[in-house]
Design a protein around this nucleic acid. Structure first.
Length: 421
RNA sequence: CGGGAACUGGCCUAAUGGUAAGGCGUCUGGUUUGGGACCAGAAGAUUGGCGGUUCGAGUCCGCCGUUCCCGACCA
């Protein structure tokens, strides 16, 4: 992509009223735009990053044999009456059609996936079944917070699992814990696994995945000795680790994922049953597994930034390279610089590299500031200085110093695919 | 939902109750090119909305809206 073709100017100043560092930078770098409290538009760079996150999650879901679906956002009232949550789910957005038919804007999808799964399931031979989606959820939060971290409309991955037995559910549940740890690791995040409260949501057992960030809204009690961690919400007045006795530490965290064993909570009201080996009719055992995708954009930004902008890990960066030209006063040198950059840009594209080419006719300082703000892991500079040595300047976003590399060598490395960042 | 604060061109700010100012950005032209450069010119605001007090309201009062923060709440 060429920056000259995207007429989105970055902001020099933080919008007032915004306190979340990641949200300030996301707004300044024009990754997102605010529409209202907890409601955001995703602009090209933000969407690219969001898609990187989604794709990592999608890959891991498909690896365990889950199939992707996309369910409706308009949920007929009647479905929510079946579980009696039409009246009890406080954050439910309700809308009416012109003929006064009532709908909920989906905040979660048990009411939809459970009857849907009945299309697939009638025998133990049809189990287990894993379905997931990555979709916009709507929740009428009493207080949207910290920009993108708690919104009223947000992107979420939700996986639902269906099992013939509680034992099978438990095994899969443990497997999902490991899958989640792997996903967050790939995203560059440290997570603590805590026992969750479950809320009004599930009858059973649940765990939360918490990433330590100072702006987080949860407080997690962590044992510095063993791996024990528990959300303060459900750990009233615990001071010492119940496992090893060491004094617990309080850490501010953002919840990035959670998993639940639902058991029969939804299969029962929707009469989701199967015939087991013994010929008996049984309730399907269900689990659900969520990851806040758009929240992750904020949390990763919260972890990976400095005073100038983002320092995205390569796995989620909107671009791997930001290519900059520094033109000079001399027209003939200028021409050469532009041609070199243009050739380099094409070589990068040819090798399927993700590159943002800043070909705008603006001052050097402005290009550097924008590159730091947007936060591609590598900055490439084509300048008179480097060109005199037949070289290109290479700088890592999170390093202070840059290095020169011969242009030919760089292109060679590119095409031999030996470069892994 | 309880408490607190705020709302002035696209963004950030200023204006003892006296008729909206500046910076950034944008547009034009020039100049410049290693960290948001410089010069000249231009466009852009019925100060969130409605009502009130006043000779006169961005400023004071009331109601409403929106946003932020603390709390309650929260797959």
């Amino acid at each position: 992509m060429k920056l000259s073709e995207l007429h989105l100017k970055t902001l020099r100043e933080a919008p007032k009223d915004e306190v979340s560092q990641s949200t300030i930078l996301l707004l300044r770098a024009r990754f997102i735009e605010k529409l209202g409290a907890g409601v955001y538009n995703y602009l090209p760079f933000g969407l690219r990053t969001l898609n990187k996150i989604s794709n990592i999650i999608r890959e891991e879901m498909e690896k365990i044999g889950a199939f992707e679906v996309l369910m409706a956002s308009l949920h007929p009232r009647q479905k929510w009456e079946i579980t009696q949550r039409w009246g009890s789910f406080d954050a439910l957005f309700k809308v009416q059609s012109r003929s006064e038919q009532e709908f909920a804007l989906g905040p979660t999808h048990e009411e939809i996936i459970t009857p849907l799964a009945a299309n697939f399931i009638s025998s133990y031979k049809d189990l287990p079944l894993y379905l997931f989606q990555i979709q916009t959820k709507f929740r009428d939060e009493p207080r949207p917070k910290s920009g993108i971290l708690r919104g009223r409309e947000f992107l979420m991955k939700d996986l639902y699992s269906f099992h013939a037995s509680a034992e099978d559910l438990a095994v899969f549940y443990e497997k999902m814990k490991k899958v989640y740890v792997r996903i967050f690791k790939r995203l560059g995040l440290r997570v603590l696994i805590t026992e969750g409260s479950g809320g009004t949501f599930s009858a059973g057992y649940s765990h939360e995945f918490q990433t330590p960030v100072t702006s987080g809204e949860d407080t997690v009690l962590v044992c510095p000795q063993c791996s024990f961690a528990r959300n303060q919400e459900v750990a009233v007045k615990i001071v010492n680790c119940p496992r090893c006795g060491a004094p617990l530490e309080e850490i501010k965290c953002a919840e990035v994922g959670n998993i639940f064993q639902l058991g029969h909570k939804y299969s029962q009201p929707f009469d989701l049953v199967f015939i087991d080996k013994d010929g008996e009719k049984k309730w399907v055992e269900m689990g659900c597994y969520g990851i806040g995708v758009s929240r992750l954009l904020g949390v990763i930004g919260e972890v990976y930034h400095d005073e100038f902008g983002f320092t995205w890990p390569l796995a989620v960066a909107p671009f791997k390279y930001q290519l900059i030209t520094l033109t000079s006063g001399n027209p003939s040198i200028n021409k050469k610089i532009k041609k070199t950059a243009e050739d380099l840009y094409r070589a990068l594209l040819k090798n399927n590299e993700e590159v943002l080419y800043d070909d705008r006719d603006i001052s050097a300082g402005e290009k550097f500031k924008d590159a730091d703000l947007i936060g591609a892991p590598w900055r490439l500079v084509v300048s008179e200085k480097a060109l005199n040595q037949g070289a290109l300047e290479l700088k890592k976003r999170n390093k202070k110093t840059s290095q020169l590399i011969k242009l030919k060598k760089f292109v060679k490395i590119l095409s031999s695919k030996k470069d892994n960042g």
